[in-house]
Amino acid sequence: MSLYTAETRRLGKRRFTKFLLGGVILVLIAIAVGMFFTNEKNTPATIAAAQAKADSEFQAAVRQSATDKQTCVAAQGTPDASNWPTNCDDVYQPQTSDFQAAWYMPATFDFREQFPNMITALAAIVAVAAFVIGASFVGAEWASGGMMNLLLWRPRRLQVLSTKIGALLSLLTGFTIVLMAAWTGVFALIANLRGSLDTMTSGAWQSIVLMELRGLALVLVAGAVGFGLASIGRHTAVAMGVAVGVVVLLQFGLYIVLAMANVRFAEVVLATSWATAWMDKTVTITDWNSCNFSGNNGCEPNTLDLTWHAAGGGLIALLVVVVGIAMWTMRSRDIT
């Protein structure tokens, strides 16, 4: 327990941890402030203004249509006739349904519809920070010789590495839970002031909480993988290099090659597809080159659903492989 306390203190004392988590909070504040100022609550006045705007636009369209029809009739028999329909009755006639008041309403924050995207944004930002913090926490220890010093005090290698990762994951769990609670509260407030919470039901709230838990899992896996990679390479830069390599080469490079080769469902190689599947429970990838024709629906392309179960399995496999190798190398490699 004393080692755990020491490692928690060590992680909390690191300026890099403080700066990065502070930076995350600032970015999230900027997003929340932006959402606050770009959304507006629907009031009878804004609805009336939008309706008036829709009516006004409709009237303008009607006038323009009448003018167009007159011009079309006048153009008959002249070279300009080619610019108009043969039958001037075919000139576009505006309908009131084409000018709905809703389209002229200011943006409003519908909590049930839009907050899931905000959870995904939060999870993505915190996951990136968790990866870097995890990598730096153990990478700096290896590079500075701190790990060797610690092992002189605690010559149980696996216990030391497990305690370190435990301290990291505890901090990330605490930070993410607090952040998600605050994030939910802030956006509930924004919805209250600049949108609507009216459609939220107990089932919708439950769904939000479950999505936040999936976001927490994503953050923890990112932190553990960053930690594991830096521990395997015994330097922060190794984890960062692997991350850049995977994103640039394996992700976009491979995706571009597969797309150029017209391989079906090439998006499967993108980590973002799996992350989205994990967060949104399912992602549908469409093969736009395929066609399943039916009399009723016409041409329908093939689709592939990535489910959160499959994505979760992938996250667990990644976690087990990276942390497992880190533990194995910690146990078996000399510390020179």
Partner: peptide, 18 residues
């Protein structure tokens, strides 16, 4: 070899805790 951004007191107290 020590972590450069910690003070001597921090470094030793962390080891003492551990």
């Amino acid at each position: 070899q020590f972590f450069g951004n910690f003070s001597a007191q921090d470094t030793l107290s962390l080891l003492a805790d551990a």
